[in-house]
């Protein structure tokens, strides 16, 4: 008996010593891309492994940030700005990610009755200038003019080339690029063998795997302060669109940064809309569209994509899909 116990003890000691492979939690702030604070939290076996993943994720995010940059051009890169400036005159060859994001945008345009529109760059630019000034609304005539150049059907994509049939149409991926980039960056992390992480792109969270002791806990803020609720998630994305932080107040009226393509002005049905679904790009696009849709049409859209939703209205209690409630709890 003693011998057996001794042997067992030896085996256990060896195993305890080899336990250096236990995963540890690491967090790192990533470069600021898509105008948001980005952060990666992951469980890795070593700091070097985590750094390698964080660097690769940063690289992918930067690459996509440049590709979908509305304001700047970069050497040797045909990006959104290049396309906006030249596709009205001649066909422009674009990157595969550009095509993939445009395909997503087109599909969501159809599905959301035009509420998610990536072809209204002129309109969003008008509003962006006003948000920066913070004290005036865009000129009504200019808005009407911009609204007449927002038809995605005038954007031709063939054989990897983009051409604008309407030379005054402009693309703006502001509402969907962040989510798409999050999904791609998550794929990069997974390809490096990182299985358990949270990638937070300011209100746009992609999670994979879990913590050693349970699923990831994602808090959802209440516009009036505090945390409204939280969800437990293992693989998927949580994206919130809200109007209470980005935007401006003019003459006592709140104008949020999400513009309804039908009215040409800030959508104000909801204070925030949170979407949970499998793909971060889809979640981002859906949250923008749902922000402009009423509950009935919103529920239909969410159901079509199997997404779960939490709506926080300006007045009254939050509304949630049944499936959303299933993610809640633990808090």
């Amino acid at each position: 008996m003693k011998k057996v116990l001794c042997a067992l003890l030896v085996v256990l000691t060896v195993l305890f010593c080899s336990c250096a492979t236990a995963k540890k939690r690491y967090t790192q702030t990533l470069p600021t891309v898509f105008d948001t604070f980005c952060e990666l939290t992951a469980y890795c076996r070593s700091e070097e492994e985590f750094r390698r993943v964080a660097d690769a994720v940063s690289g992918e995010l930067l690459r996509l940030h440049r590709l979908f940059d509305y304001f700047n051009e970069y050497p040797d890169l045909i990006n959104l700005k290049t396309v906006n400036e030249t596709a009205g005159k001649e066909a422009v060859p674009v990157d595969g990610d550009f095509l993939a994001l445009w395909t997503l945008a087109e599909e969501l345009y159809e599905a959301s009755d035009g509420k998610c529109n990536a072809a209204m760059g002129h309109l969003t630019a008008l509003w962006r200038d006003c948000f920066e000034a913070g004290d005036r609304l865009p000129d009504g005539e200019a808005v009407r003019e911009a609204l007449s150049h927002t038809d995605p059907a005038t954007v031709r994509v063939e054989n990897g080339m983009v051409f604008f049939l309407d030379p005054d149409v402009r693309l703006d991926f502001g509402a969907i690029a962040k989510g798409y980039a999050g999904e791609r960056a998550a794929e990069v992390a997974v390809s490096l063998g990182c299985t358990d992480f949270v990638l937070n792109l300011g209100g746009n969270v992609v999670v994979r795997g879990k913590k050693p002791y349970g699923a990831w806990q994602i808090g959802i803020e209440n516009p009036d302060g505090g945390v409204e609720t939280s969800v437990s998630l293992s693989d998927g994305a949580v994206v919130t669109s809200g109007d209470y932080l980005r935007g401006m107040d003019v003459d006592g009226v709140r104008y949020g940064h999400i513009i309804d393509p039908d009215t040409g002005s800030s959508a104000r049905l909801w204070r925030s809309v949170t979407v949970i679904c499998g793909d971060s790009g889809l979640a981002d696009a859906l949250s923008t569209a749902l922000f402009c849709l009423d509950e009935t049409r919103g529920r239909a859209l969410a159901a079509r994509y199997g997404a779960e939703v939490l709506w926080i209205p300006a007045h009254g209690h939050p509304i949630r899909t049944q499936g959303f409630a299933a993610y809640e709890g633990g808090e």
């Binding site: 604070f37 939290t41 949270v198 209100g203 994602i218 808090g219």
Partner: peptide
């Protein structure tokens, strides 16, 4: 897990502690 970020100034203010959230959206 809650944070307040001021991007123009590069400031991040974050609550630390045990448990809580791994990320907060809103």
């Amino acid at each position: 897990g809650q944070t307040i970020v001021c991007l123009p100034n590069g400031i991040a203010v974050r609550i630390l502690g045990d448990g809580g959230f791994d990320a907060v959206v809103g």
